[in-house]
Simulated scan of single mutants.
Amino acid sequence: MVLQHLEPDCTDTVTIKGDQTMRVNADFNERILVRFKENEWIASPMPGVDRKMLDRIGEEVARATTIVRFAPGSAFSAHTHDGGEEYLVIDGTFQDEGGDFPAGFYVRNPPTSSHTPAAQDGATILVKLYQFDLADRTQVQVDSAKGDWLDAKDGVSRLPLHADMSETVAMERWDAGTARTLDASDGLEIFVIDGSLNEGGDTLFRWDWLRLPVGARFEATAGAHGARVWIKTGHLNHVTEPAA
């Protein structure tokens, strides 16, 4: 099911009686800014695992963008990602059968993949669920600390993370005061890993998240200490609701 005009336009969690669909920031035609410090932690079904919901359609099986915090020693039960999972480790060390993934790692686990996530010493991740082409089977693991960053140009250095026919994902470092224009014609998400930037009159700080709709323009300027950001573009033309 392709969702073109999702209602209601939610900034809070809403449960619709009958289909029990949770919708958080579910109008993809709107510019959405979520500030980390103003967004409350919500307990997950697993002890020691809390979440800040950025956008969501669905209950525990959901198309979702979330900041997830694992307390030291916490874990999730083994599970399969029918719609795929994409995450960026932003603090601590995240673990599963594939190994240890310290802060700065970007991982894509495609549809039908399974794992048992944990964090012996604690971790925080930015995670996106059920946002893959269901035929995708590409596994991606990139350590940004060791990645092939492209040479800085006009105050910007860039680390490509993933690209396919429907989306492009990258990490960028912007020098202080750098003005940056990006193609947001097919939608854009940007997450501030550290530093700050100004966009549309708003200043975004560490772990703030911005989503721009299809047809938007993105023009931003890095703050006094520069910015390191995670960027996804080209992916919001076709937003699908997860199967029940």
Rank of each mutant, 00 (worst) to 15 (best):
P110K: 04
F94M: 14
F105L: 05
G83E: 01
H115E: 06
A135L: 07
K153I: 15
V68E: 04
A145M: 14
T66D: 05
P110W: 01
K128R: 15
S74Q: 07
R69G: 07
T138I: 15
D143W: 15
G99V: 10
V107N: 02
T93A: 10
F76G: 13
L129D: 02
H79S: 07
A118Y: 01
L129Y: 01
T116W: 06
F70I: 04
L129C: 06
T80C: 12
D91F: 11
P72N: 15
S113K: 06
I125H: 06
T116S: 13
L126H: 12
L88G: 03
K128D: 00
A71L: 14
F76E: 13
T112H: 11
A152F: 09
G92T: 12
Y87G: 06
L129P: 00
D100S: 12
Q95T: 08
A135Y: 13
H81I: 12
D100N: 15
D82K: 14
S114N: 09
E86R: 03
N109W: 02
G104W: 03
F105C: 05
R137I: 12
A123Y: 01
L134P: 04
Y130S: 05
G155T: 03
S114A: 13
V107Q: 04
T112S: 11
A71T: 10
V140K: 14
I125K: 06
T138G: 04
Y130W: 14
D121C: 11
Q139P: 06
G92Y: 08
E85G: 02
H79L: 09
E97Y: 08
G122N: 14
V127P: 01
T116I: 05
G83A: 02
V127D: 05
G147P: 11
E86V: 03
V156M: 13
F70Q: 01
V127L: 09
F94V: 02
A152R: 13
A145Y: 14
A71W: 05
D121I: 13
A78M: 12
A118M: 10
G122L: 13
T66Q: 04
A118E: 03
D154F: 12
F105V: 07
